[in-house]
Simulated assay, not measured.
Amino acid sequence: MTVRTQADVTDAGRADSQPRAQVWVGGEDFELRDFERPQLAEGESLVRLTTATVCGSDRHTVSGRRSGACPSVLGHEGVGIVEETRSDLPVGTRVVFAVTSVCGGCRNCERGLSAKCTSVAKVGHESAESAWPLSGTYASHIHLPAGVAMVPVPDHLPDAVAATAGCAVATVMAMLESAGELDGRRVFVNGIGMLGLTAVAAAKARGAEAVMAFDPSPTRARRALTAGADSLVGADETARDVDVALELSGSEVGVRACLDSLGIGGTVVLAGSVSPGPDIEISPERIVRGWHSITGVHNYEPHHLQEAVDFLATAGGTLPWEEILGGPISLADLPREFVEPSAGLRTVVEIGPR
């Protein structure tokens, strides 16, 4: 396949630009480094990034709460322009991309669980000294292997909003698939961060009869109402008789609250518990007699990324973006962001023009 570049379709002169990235080198320290432009293999692309958003998991990595490759180019929520490619996607296409690079041929990939590919590599999680140094979004460019799904972005969708598709919003789409049909059902959302707000709005968009929400922070809890929640669960209350409980806090108390909230035939979908925590006792008898289901979701499949873009382009407009998005900041200012975080759930990093 012929390598196509942005220089083939525009006079912008970007095809010869040298990639530059903020490299996390441990603790709260970053270094701005230049990288060689990668030689693309079949199916690969080089995307010139326009915007990234700062996910909470990167803050956990920098603070030491979460392990990560070091040195590395962090960041896994972003949007950009295909600048050079050996894929079928046209040069100049504005895209978001999945967080996982997968083989497509292992048992997990073949049964629709590519998020758990046996040879998975992850955007924003690989060493800057590995064979995939430009893996993160805190950079001018990101190198996308053939195993990373890309989805075009509608022109009307703002960069900062589109960037959230690649982690938060696509993960919620995977949760809702695991939850099953929501039309006419009662939904409880526990944990009102970026994912929780998305879950509230998406559940309403899918026809939920009532959406209840809880967060220990009154400010975050109130945001759920602006996203479409019908009611808030008080700190001294417990949601009851719900059909679907979506757990996004990762806390022991939150998981227990979701389990206790289920009515007959109810389903709990856990997505917040991504780090070790206390074990929780469950009653097998209650699960059996209540026809309950408990499932977990970690990352997502390519079709969930497409669903995320579709949601953001339509019902996602109801989300309180003026409260969600903090910043913007420049790529040069990124290190300070991890010391003095901006207000909002997602800090916008403006990297380059569309």
Rank of each mutant, 00 (worst) to 15 (best):
V73P: 05
H76G: 00
P90V: 00
T118F: 04
R59H: 14
S119A: 15
L113W: 10
G80R: 04
I81W: 03
N108M: 15
E110Y: 05
R66Y: 13
S63C: 01
P90R: 00
T118W: 06
S114Y: 08
G68K: 08
R86A: 14
V91M: 10
V95R: 10
T61I: 13
S67A: 15
V82S: 10
R94F: 07
C70D: 05
P71H: 02
G104V: 12
G64V: 02
N108K: 13
C109G: 09
S119T: 15
D58W: 06
T61Y: 06
V91E: 10
L113R: 13
V62E: 10
G105E: 15
V102Y: 12
G64I: 01
R111C: 14
G78V: 02
S63Q: 07
D88S: 13
G78C: 08
R65L: 14
R86F: 09
S72W: 04
S119H: 13
R107G: 13
S67P: 03
D58N: 11
D58S: 01
G78E: 03
C70T: 12
C103I: 12
C103N: 11
E77K: 09
R111Q: 15
E77N: 06
R107D: 15
V96F: 06
G92H: 02
L113T: 09
P71D: 02
E83P: 08
R94I: 10
S57I: 01
C103F: 08
G78D: 07
